[in-house]
């Protein structure tokens, strides 16, 4: 039982600005109101490899994910922890993020991959974002009989949240654009 969803979005902002916005996505108080399911984002590890211009980052993301009562009953809480690994290749201008849950792995595995690349039609002005979400419910889990429902709920939540995420990204990009033109004046 695997469900996969792909989404694509074009930001009319250059890659450098969009990836800068991506790092700020969870931090701003106004964004925190919109992305209220994100409770904590901590940086666990960071590695810069100067010869290749690659920057590796691992972050811990704590998410509030209220499920139906029976899920809470089995799981005992409605907080779930994810680990996000990011590689930014400054030379080839690509950013790849992979997020996986480390809580509830007995029941469900969620993997979200996001890529930011310069848009082929306008590489210096626009950025293309490709997102793939895979949700897999463990067939022998205690939740197997309810798996369909959980899977559906999970998927709906993910799609809602990625729409919110885009909204936040667009706003931060605009902010950064204004900031950089302000500095340029």
């Amino acid at each position: 039982m695997v469900k996969a969803y792909t989404q694509e979005h074009t930001y009319r902002h250059p890659w450098e600005r969009v990836t800068s916005a991506s790092w700020r996505k969870f931090a701003d108080p106004e964004n925190k109101r919109i992305l209220s399911h994100i409770l904590e984002v901590d940086t666990l590890n960071r590695l810069l490899d100067p010869p290749s211009g690659k920057l590796y980052t691992t972050r811990a993301i704590t998410i509030h994910c209220p499920g139906p009562w029976f899920v809470r009953k089995i799981v005992g809480h409605d907080i779930c922890h994810c680990v996000e690994s990011t590689v930014v290749d400054a030379r080839s201008r690509s950013m790849q993020l992979t997020t996986r849950n480390i809580s509830l792995q007995k029941f469900v595995e969620v993997e979200e991959k996001i890529r930011y690349d310069p848009h082929p039609d306008n590489p210096n002005g626009w950025t293309i974002c490709q997102q793939e979400t895979r949700i897999r419910i463990k067939p022998l889990s205690a939740l197997a009989s309810m798996a369909e429902k959980v899977e559906q709920r999970c998927a709906e939540k993910f799609l809602q949240n990625s729409a919110k995420g885009r909204e936040v990204m667009e706003r931060i990009c605009k902010y950064l654009e204004a900031e950089s033109s302000g500095l340029a004046l």
Binding site: E16, T19, S20, W23, R24, A27, T43, R46, L48, P50, G53, L55, V88, A90, L176
Partner: peptide, 22 residues
Amino acid sequence: AYHNCFNRWYAEKFMKGQWDKE
């Protein structure tokens, strides 16, 4: 404090080709 510092470094240095040091 760390994230603010990192965000500045990322946008103002790393994105402008200065990736020799953290």
